[in-house]
Design a protein around this nucleic acid. Structure first.
Lengths: 355, 355
DNA sequence: ACCAGGACTTAAAGCGCTTTAAATTGTCCT
DNA sequence: AGGACAATTTAAAGCGCTTTAAGTCCTGGT
């Protein structure tokens, strides 16, 4: 490929010098360069480029043309500084979570609709919540949308002092923060209802550990069982959010001799562990045992699992989170708000009636 | 929780007014506030906070203390503008890809080591590469690290004119760009070698479509088969990067009557589709048929799949990408560089000898 | 005493943009 | 022709920081 081809679509830069930095990267055009090109002030150019009414149609056209010719692109850092607004929502995500991925996707579209941009900061093994949030703040995020934060409530409250915090997917008791989440207990309840409706009575629950979410889901199981008069059948096996935990729990059941007719797991990963262990033991699902998970992970949808699970409606949660942020920022709401969405049971192939 | 508790650890702001914006968020302290508190100039404070040698030990301590008391945090946006350096590497990722997630994780640590920060911009269904890259540029990223970009080579070349572009995971012929990738053909070759070593001869390949990567992997299969004198057994089934494609391919084989003894799939997802279809048909893996994938996805590691696959060494790729960027930015390298890493076969439970 | 030189510190000039108040131009009446 | 008023355009003052040149203050040497 010739140099000419590489430059295709590129505009020539018109300045005295080479227009390049030492490292060979061309100096990016500034508002001033565009202004000079059309013989106007930077103020006018700024107005046109931001779509502010005022400039005449003729000016508008000329500026737009010049900007395009020069390949001008606004410098966010400068405009943030000047306007005292970044119009940026900081989002903390766990980049390994498929559910967060979905949330981010919807956050993007929701934010765009209200004229905000997103800046992402991710958690990794070596990057804790503190670091992630600091980065967000360093970029001058106007609000912080935290996906499933594990920080204690008071730490989040302190943070809220720097910028409105919107917590997504986790319950926080007695807080002044905005919270968007689904009713985890309700989700598990729905699952139990579904199973009972299919004729199941011996329904075991594989627990998710000691987090807030795990507590809620466990409660949902207990409550639903009692409601159906199955209090005596309540049985909670220790577990956590991993596939390994599911396997362990299932093996425990298998070793115990008599299998329940249904297993409800804390989340999809855990449920998949259960599934794997049962499969290895030659137990038919859902023929002999029904299995259900929680989260509607990408995993659960794979046709090879086809897991009955509970969907957390990422789209709505994202939308509510952005709305909450905007209300805080542009409509000076100061009262905290908690949005609790109803999760939706997704019945797939791992649950069936007692034939 | 009382208001006092919420404020725990928070410093009182000392300015004339309320120190709060209309929306109730406190005004963030500036360098000037810190300076005023210790009776120094902003210049000195700036020096201390950046760890530049010069200020006396006593000054250093006092500034640090004051900054901590005030909860001062540097405003990136302002320092970028002032220093004309953002020390930011822009990274374009597909947030749904587990492999990208891993790359990002390692990019973070690699960047941190050389004093750079990352800004992520993600691809979604409604957010194309162009948009993602523009965002990166708007933040003034000094270099662009693009993970598996699909844009044509010339578009990337144009982009390289604005900031050094480092492409990760994809081959680009005859380019002036930096490229970091693994030898995809080699990876598949290794898989074939492994299978042949186990005694397999009828090895089918499920294709990945028409991308550059797919082409390379397919070639790897063909080459390896010929090398082993198995040219007559070469058989490529249409497919793509989805589980569904794997299932289709497997069903095709099942319908065809005679099964091969091994199936190599374009990637892990596709391989899992194959696995699922075989399982449903009651074909034992690896007893009757061996299956291998590519990518060493999180999926493939799940013990319920335990898939033999090829690892792309995310860590090294990330490290090389950052190094390439830094060389361009700080050591004015101008010659393009291509780093081709050797992928590593990860033998798990889905491949076995012909018993 | 006096000054060179080192150790600190700081004034001031931006960075690239937004924004406000003021200036300029054009239009339409009387 | 003169002026009022609306439509455009722009000068200039920052935003919060970095950076460079220029101080200021001590030392110690002579």
């Amino acid at each position: 490929m010739s140099p000419e081809e590489i430059r295709a679509g590129e505009a020539q830069v018109e300045d005295g010098g080479s227009g390049r930095h030492q490292n060979g990267t061309p100096k990016r055009p500034r508002l001033e360069d565009v202004a000079a090109r059309v013989g106007l002030s930077t103020a006018s150019v700024s107005l046109v480029l931001r779509g502010v009414p005022g400039p005449s149609e003729r000016t508008r056209q000329r500026v737009l043309k010049a900007a395009a010719d020069l390949g001008y692109q606004v410098d966010r850092t400068a405009s943030t500084l000047a306007s005292r607004r970044s119009r940026l929502l900081g989002v903390m995500v766990d980049i390994h979570s498929p559910f967060h991925a979905e949330l981010v996707e919807h956050l993007h579209t929701a934010a765009e609709e209200v004229g905000y941009d997103l800046v992402l900061s991710t958690l990794t093994r070596t990057r804790d919540e503190r670091t992630a949030v600091d980065t967000l703040l360093a970029f001058r995020s106007e609000a912080l949308i935290l996906l499933g934060p594990t920080a204690p409530a008071d730490a989040l409250a302190v943070l809220d002092n720097k910028a409105p915090v919107i917590t997504v997917g986790r319950r926080i008791a007695d807080t002044a923060l905005d919270v968007v989440r689904t009713a985890d207990d309700d989700g598990v309840s729905q699952t139990v209802d579904h199973l009972v409706g299919l004729g199941h009575r011996e329904i075991v629950y594989v627990d998710g550990g000691k987090g807030v979410i795990a507590t809620d889901r466990r409660r949902g199981y207990r409550t639903a069982m009692r409601r159906h008069g199955l209090g005596d059948h309540i049985r909670v096996l220790a577990g956590d959010n991993t596939e390994a935990a599911g396997e362990r729990a299932a093996r425990h059941l298998l070793d115990g001799g008599r299998l329940p007719t249904a297993v409800v797991a804390y989340n999809d990963q855990c449920a998949i562990g259960v599934l794997a262990a049962l499969a290895r033991a030659g137990v038919a699902v859902p023929g002999e045992v029904s299995v259900a998970g929680y989260d509607d992970d990408t995993l659960s949808r794979l046709s090879c699992f086809n897991l009955t699970t509970v969907s957390q409606s990422a789209r709505e949660q994202a939308q509510h989170a952005v709305t909450a942020a905007v209300e805080r920022l542009d409509q000076d709401r100061t009262e905290p708000r908690e949005v609790v969405l109803t999760p939706r049971l997704v019945v797939r192939g791992t649950t069936a009636g007692r034939g």
